[in-house]
Design a protein around this nucleic acid. Structure first.
Length: 966
RNA sequence: ACGACCGUAGCUCAGUUGGUUAGAGCAUCGCCUUGACAUGGCGGGGGUCGGUGGUUCAAAUCCACUCGGUCGUACCA
């Protein structure tokens, strides 16, 4: 074995072995002895990453937690499936390929045409689709690769079709002309969730709209003033609203104003939406370009005038619709030609200038407002009137809300349930059509008259509706929102709409691990779709998963979100393999959208990683992520933690090295027949192991990964390595043959158990070491089930193995050794120097007890001659430590400076005095003594007595020492 | 504006139903290359738990208010 742990030598080798051996498959599909039974099944559906993407730290985090759960449950004997797959990620993928096309030969997707372009995307998927799956292998993800799915594979496509068609037939999907969030750059509708509102500074323009028919306001003005942040929309105004109770204007209701620039006569209406307190009390109403106005329009049967092209420029001629969305000739649709085809923001300036020239610009004010941006395109989105497909979300949401209310689905941490409820209880219909080319084409066809038919194929529809060839059918150009297909993820991946064994065994799945940012996008929609389509044998809706574990976000060391544009992204693989500074800089600053950031990023990267990043290995990365995973809070990434846990891996490695060196060629009881004797340290470490096992189980079952890893770390480093391995040294050197066998047996078996405990978190190092110690630990490596640690049983605590005396004895032993070490440390005595030791004030029990531990004290505290002194004996000049009643004395004898010992004693006495004062304060308080529980008071009394006794003895020692050898 | 979460050692974080002297890792200081490990060993220092007030015999923990931060939602004529 190498002196240090070299992760790069072992990781990929073991992963390939596991994968090749089929160990990631569910147990029921590996061996006939495991029956497929939904009661013993454990399934995690992976949140499908973008097929053309790559892993970031957030993935690494979530994947690690999922893998910990999967490996843990698999070892506990659950029939475990971690379902893997990728998402076609509509807009994101289409954009990537469009950019690639543009960069390579300056083409747009329109140059290629739809079929050719979609083919290009499939090509790109073939080329880049392997990246993320390769990265997952490096992370050690124990997913079932053989059943990997893609949201556009054949079976999935069938599921999507079936869901769409059924929902349409049930009246839960409909088509309608409505306002949607329109992205003028990508030229597609997007959902509310894909809109990012950003605060920005803008202007509020106050416009004068002349009253028609020579009427005047109560104040005698012949115009109304409206205010707007988007003056260009005035071209589409179809009313002015005032509050029906507003004394200033209520007599004008039913009258008209003349809309400037377009010379349109539009009504003044009364609506509560107009707030008398706000602005001038008059609101321009543009139902085709504002969501609130659209609602007002519906209440008053207003016409809707669309003035924008799909690319965000002003139309040459407006589109006029009546309140039902039918084309209308009520108004002259012509628009001033000087704005035609100019961008909305250019038009804004021109229109303001033109109104100003007409004397109709009353005021311009600075204004803070939030502006909606498309999260993908980064441009301002526009409410636009278009024909789109919608899902009746309210109907579907009802059972989905109930499932969380009645606890069928639990969120961890629980507070996210509120987030879920608040959104679900106020849910809007879901716009599912997207004007993209990449995605599931909507299975709808139109005839010449615009009549819509929904069905699996054109042929199906023709036969179903008896349409002959004289009727031309054209398929809807649009595709479905990506989240429409991912909403079917839990059951479509298991084979639905076929009725498969996997669906029966693994659905509902056990736990979904995901980020809070997609609770709405994904979690809620999976709930709705699954409960609508998947029923159990009694016809009761099935939930998609029983538990939703919400993770926090991984941020950079300053708590900032990691993003490409900030240049603070860390690649999990760089943590594993390491990366040079130059390569890291290239990665962070190359191919930047905003080159001006480049220098800044380079500078910061150089400062933060002057030597690049060294290799830490997958296990260290995973352990770090697990250790930081406390419930649902964000993680500020800390390279120092990673380094600490790399050292921890090395610690385990060397502990194993020690064990191997000491069992090699010796009997360690593997045959189960040899005589052996367990010594005090053996009994102790076995007892502690049981306690740790039950702690870890508790923590895993509560999803407290951080506490589980902490328990493991503490036990391995601070107990097994620091104490047990050290205690084993004198035993192996001086113990009897049976004792040596007992210790070797314990050394290797506890190590073997530790490896199994740690395996879900650190799969590679545990497998590597386990392979070399399984035989001495008494495991028959020739049996197939013993080929790998990943299929071994997870350790379970056995309270019969806890020896209570060993726990108190070792605590006492530790206290004595620490006392000597403390004197040594504080007096700057070299650790190797053998010290004589006096023990004073020990009772007969202490003496008997000390006999049991003398061997270890001598070895670990490096003491030579040990002399017991009775209470009456004169104490030699010595440094003193108290262990309960017992006084530990190290003679000064030229080793120790008297004054520093006096100083040290003083410090100790001082400490005791403070404690005594505190306890006295408490105990003289009648309220405390009367009202606190008796055992609490008694405890405090005892502490006081002990502190007083200790103080007295330290003071005696102090006086004696000071008097000596003056 | 409303809601959620967070504020504990220099840094990153634990701290359960209120009850020992508030813990860990990293960093720091001192001693040590001892035959598993210097990616190490041993020992030490470091915190008025964001602030104020309250409930209680007892508050990091419960309540109210307040300051700071993150996120979400709403509003924005």
């Amino acid at each position: 074995m190498d002196k240090t742990f070299q992760p790069q030598d072992i990781e990929q080798r073991w992963y390939q072995h596991w994968e090749k051996s089929g160990y990631f498959k569910p147990g029921s599909e590996q061996s006939k002895s495991v029956k497929a039974d939904s009661n013993n099944a454990y399934c995690i559906p992976i949140p499908p990453p973008n097929v053309t993407g790559s892993l970031h730290m957030g993935h690494a985090f979530q994947h690690t937690l999922m893998d910990v759960l999967a490996r843990y449950q698999r070892m506990r004997g659950k029939d475990t499936l971690w379902q893997v797959g990728t998402d076609h990620a509509g807009i994101a993928t289409q954009m990537v390929v469009e950019r690639k096309l543009a960069a390579e030969n300056g083409q747009t997707r329109h140059d290629l045409g739809r079929d050719e372009f979609v083919k290009k995307i499939w090509d790109w998927k073939e080329e880049s689709g392997g990246t993320i799956t390769q990265q997952m292998r490096r992370l050690g993800d124990s997913v079932d690769w053989q059943s990997e799915r893609f949201t556009m594979d054949e079976g999935f496509n069938a599921a999507v079709q079936k869901v769409f068609i059924s929902l349409f037939d049930q009246g839960l999907i409909y088509r309608g002309k409505r306002l949607v969030n329109w992205d003028p750059k990508l030229q597609t509708a997007i959902s509310d969730l894909e809109v990012e509102n950003k605060d920005s500074k803008g202007h509020m323009w106050h416009l004068r709209y002349p009253l028609a028919d020579d009427i005047c306001t109560a104040e005698g003005k012949n115009y109304l003033i409206v205010a707007t942040t988007r003056p260009e929309t005035m071209l589409g105004d179809t009313a002015i609203a005032v509050n029906p109770n507003d004394p200033r204007y209520k007599n004008l209701i039913g009258q008209y104003i003349t809309l400037p620039l377009v010379d349109r006569k539009i009504p003044i209406i009364g609506d509560d939406y107009a707030d008398m307190e706000k602005g001038t009390g008059c609101v321009k109403i543009t139902p085709a370009h504002d969501f609130n106005d659209s609602e007002v329009g519906k209440r008053h049967d207003l016409f809707m005038i669309n003035i924008l092209n799909k690319n965000g420029t002003i139309r040459t001629t407006a589109e006029v619709f009546d309140h039902k969305g039918n084309l209308s000739n009520q108004f002259d649709p012509s628009l001033p030609k000087e704005y035609a085809d100019t961008d909305r923001f250019t038009a804004r300036k021109t229109i303001v200038a033109d109104l100003d020239a007409l004397g109709l610009l009353d005021a311009v004010k600075e204004h803070e407002l939030s502006v909606p941006y498309g999260d993908r395109s980064g441009v301002v989105v526009e409410p636009l009137l278009t024909d789109q497909w919608y899902v009746d979300a309210k109907t579907l949401a009802k059972p989905a809300i109930e499932a969380v209310e009645d606890g069928s689905v639990k969120f961890v941490p629980k507070q996210y349930e509120n987030m879920y409820f608040s959104w679900m209880r106020d849910i809007q219909d879901w716009c599912i059509s997207r004007q993209l080319w990449w995605g599931h084409r909507i299975p709808a066809w139109y005839d010449d008259k615009g009549q819509v038919y929904v069905g699996q194929s054109e042929a199906d529809i023709r036969s179903q509706h008896s349409l002959n060839d004289t009727v031309t059918l054209t398929q809807d150009e649009d595709v479905l929102d990506t989240w429409f297909s991912s909403a079917l993820w839990t059951f479509a991946t298991l084979g639905w709409p076929e009725s498969t064994d996997r669906l029966k065994t693994f659905h509902p799945t056990s736990v979904l691990v995901t980020g809070f940012d997609i609770i709405f996008f994904w979690v809620a929609r999976m709930m709705m779709m699954t409960m609508h389509f998947i029923k159990d044998e009694n016809g009761k809706p099935q939930v998609p998963f029983n538990t939703v574990y919400i993770t926090g976000l991984i941020r950079d060391e300053q708590g900032k979100k990691m993003s490409k544009s900030k240049g603070n992204v860390l690649d999990p693989l760089d943590m594993i393999d390491g990366i040079s500074l130059d390569a890291l800089i290239e990665k962070r600053s190359g191919n930047m959208m905003q080159p001006q950031q480049r220098e800044k990023i380079i500078k910061r990267t150089k400062k933060q990683f002057p030597d690049g990043i060294s290799a830490h290995g997958t296990d260290a990365l995973r352990f770090t992520l697990v250790a930081l995973a406390s419930t649902g809070r964000d993680i500020n990434w800390d390279m120092n933690r990673l380094e600490g846990y790399r050292n921890f891996c090395n610690k385990i490695w060397n502990a194993a090295r020690y064990v191997l060196m000491n069992i090699e060629g010796h009997n360690c009881g593997a045959d189960g027949l040899s005589e052996y004797e367990l010594s005090l340290p053996d009994k102790w470490i076995v007892s502690r192991l049981q306690q740790i096992e039950s702690d870890i189980k508790k923590h895993f079952d509560n999803y407290r990964f951080d506490l589980a890893s902490q328990s493991l770390y503490d036990f391995i480093w601070n107990e097994y390595c620091d104490w047990y391995l050290e205690l084993s040294k004198p035993l192996l050197a001086e113990g009897s043959v049976d004792q040596q066998t007992g210790t070797r047996r314990t050394l290797v078996r506890v190590l073997e158990t530790i490896l199994r405990l740690a395996h879900p978190i650190m799969p590679f190092i545990t497998e590597e070491i386990w392979q070399s110690i399984r035989e001495p630990a008494g495991i028959d490596g020739n049996k197939r089930e013993n080929d790998t640690i990943m299929l071994q049983p997870y350790p379970e605590a056995d309270s019969n193995k806890i020896d209570a005396d060993s726990l108190t004895d070792i605590d006492w032993l530790k206290a004595i050794i620490v006392a000597v070490r403390n004197i040594r440390g504080e007096m700057n005595i070299s650790p190797g120097k053998i010290l004589p030791l006096y023990l004073k004030n020990g009772n007969s029990d202490d003496k008997a007890r000390f006999k049991k531990i003398e061997l270890y004290v001598v070895a670990l505290a490096k003491v030579g001659q040990i002399t017991w002194l009775s209470a009456e004996d004169a104490t030699p000049p010595a440094a003193t430590q108290l262990v309960g009643e017992l006084e530990i004395l190290v003679p000064l004898a030229g080793l120790i400076d008297k004054n520093s010992e006096l100083e040290r004693l003083n410090k100790e006495i001082d400490k005791r005095s403070k404690e005594i004062a505190r306890l006295n304060g408490k105990l003289t308080n009648a309220n405390f003594v009367d009202k606190a529980p008796a055992d609490v008071v008694e405890k405090e009394r005892q502490k006081l007595a002990e502190a007083e006794d200790a103080k007295n003895r330290l003071e005696t020692q102090y006086t004696q020492l000071r008097e000596m050898d003056r």
